[in-house]
Simulated assay, not measured.
Amino acid sequence: MKRSDIPSLDDLRAFEAVTRLGSVRAAAIELALTHGAISRRVSKLAADLKLQLLEPDGRGVRPTPDGERLALATSNALKGISTTLAEIRSPLTSPPIVLSCERSLAMRWLIPRLSDFQDRHPGIDVHLSTGGGPLDFVRERITLAIRRLDFPMDPDWTVTTLAAEAVGPVMQPDMAARFESGDYLALGSRTRPEAWQKWLATRPDIPPPRDIRLYDHHFMMLEAAANGLGVALSPQIIAADDTARGRLLAPVGFDADGTFYGLIQPKGNGPTEHAKALKKWIMQQA
């Protein structure tokens, strides 16, 4: 069939609406036309095709077998056109990047810097998820994850080392004299309950504390130290901003503990351009 043999799209739309809705009146309302205009278009379509397309059905109408076939083909064609137009008119959007990060690292290091990434890449949507340890990228729909690499790595993961872990005591500046004399309360995290004992074993020059008190998370421990409740044994990366501003003092520095922070992503089809941009930015920050 030549394209010139295909009937008017307006006539086909009117006919499809009548068959779908079961009446000329309902089709007229949907297409914002008069009852007479719908009837004329359907009659013209039947005349052009030399086919009977509709037959009476009580107070309404129903398609004949030929009309039913034409109505189905017309409906499918209109749906295809509608879908294509919606795709053309709607801006293409990428799914958000889900970045998983350990809670204290997110609060003390990542979040204060994340506005820089948003300023550089305003079109990239990053959702932050907090969590630690092993990962389930599929179930949790994670794109990238920042972790301390102290647990087994899955062979299906790509791991990029970001920074070496180093720990050291941090405190309010006026707590330094008490720390040097051993008159201090040691603050630790329940996520690393043996950290103080292990660190003191490598630093015989440091007097032991009166006692050790554990908090649920490193960020809580750091806040306690900043408010004079004791001396916190902190990872360098999460205390970096406070020590740089002078809010916390690190009088003996930080010692590497042999572990590293890494950026983890699943192997497979490869990261999107947005994920690549975020990964590059994280590596620059670290």
Rank of each mutant, 00 (worst) to 15 (best):
Pro152Ala: 09
Ser129Asn: 10
Pro134Gly: 00
Arg147Thr: 03
Arg147Ser: 03
Leu149Asn: 02
Pro134Ile: 02
Phe151Tyr: 14
His127Gln: 15
Ile146Gln: 05
Asp156Phe: 03
Asp136Ser: 14
Met153Ile: 14
Leu144Gln: 06
Thr130Asn: 11
Arg147Glu: 13
Phe137Lys: 04
Pro155Thr: 05
Asp154Cys: 09
Arg139Trp: 11
Gly131Val: 07
Thr143Asp: 12
Ser129Ala: 15
Val126Met: 05
Glu140Asp: 15
Gly131Glu: 05
Asp150Thr: 06
Asp150Ile: 10
Pro152Cys: 05
Leu144Tyr: 08
Thr143Asn: 10
Thr143Leu: 08
Pro155Tyr: 06
His127Leu: 15
Leu135Trp: 01
Gly132Thr: 11
Thr143Phe: 05
Phe137Pro: 11
Ile146Tyr: 06
Arg141His: 13
Val126Thr: 02
Pro134His: 01
Phe151His: 15
Asp154Arg: 09
Ile142Val: 09
Gly131Arg: 06
Thr143Gly: 14
Asp136Asn: 13
Thr143Arg: 02
Asp150Lys: 02
Pro155Ile: 00
Arg147Gln: 08
Pro152Ser: 06
Thr143Glu: 01
Gly132Gln: 11
Ser129Thr: 10
Gly133Asn: 02
Thr130Ala: 15
Leu149His: 02
Leu149Gln: 00
Arg141Asp: 14
Leu135Ala: 04
Ile142Ala: 09
Leu135Arg: 01
Glu140Ile: 06
Val126Arg: 02
Thr130Val: 15
His127Ile: 15
Met153Pro: 10
Phe137Cys: 06
Asp154Val: 05
Ile142Trp: 07
Gly131Ile: 08
Asp136Ile: 07
Met153Cys: 15
Phe137Asn: 04
Gly131Asn: 07
Met153Tyr: 12
Pro134Asp: 02
Asp136Ala: 13
Phe151Lys: 10
Asp150Trp: 06
Phe137His: 11
Asp154Ile: 03
Leu149Trp: 01
Leu149Asp: 01
Pro134Gln: 08
Val138Leu: 14
Asp154His: 08
Gly132Arg: 10
Leu128Ala: 10
Asp150Phe: 02
Val138Ala: 15
Leu144Met: 04
Leu128Cys: 09
Gly131Tyr: 04
Gly131Trp: 03
Gly131Asp: 04
Asp136Pro: 02
Phe151Arg: 11
Ala145Asp: 07
Leu144Lys: 05
His127Glu: 13
Arg141Asn: 13
Arg147Gly: 06
Met153Lys: 13
Asp150Asn: 12
Val138Gly: 08
Asp156Cys: 03
Ile142Lys: 03
Ile146Val: 14
Ala145Phe: 00
Val126Ala: 02
Gly133Leu: 04
Asp154Thr: 07
Gly133Ile: 01
Arg139Leu: 13
Ala145Lys: 04
Asp156Glu: 14
Arg147Tyr: 05
Leu135Gln: 03
Asp156Asn: 12
Arg139Val: 12
Asp136Lys: 09
Arg139Gly: 11
Gly132Asn: 10
Pro134Lys: 04
Thr143Ala: 09
Pro155Gln: 05
Asp156Tyr: 06
Arg141Val: 14
Ala145Arg: 00
Ile142Thr: 10
Asp156Arg: 08
Ile142Arg: 06
Ala145Trp: 01
Leu149Met: 09
Pro152Asp: 07
Glu140Met: 12
Arg148Gly: 12
His127Met: 15
Glu140Pro: 10
Leu128Arg: 06
Phe137Ser: 09
Leu135Met: 08
Pro152Met: 00
His127Thr: 13
Pro134Cys: 02
Phe137Val: 08
Leu144Thr: 05
Ile146Met: 13
Ile146Phe: 07
Leu135Ile: 03
Ser129Tyr: 12
Pro134Ser: 09
Asp156Lys: 10
Phe137Arg: 03
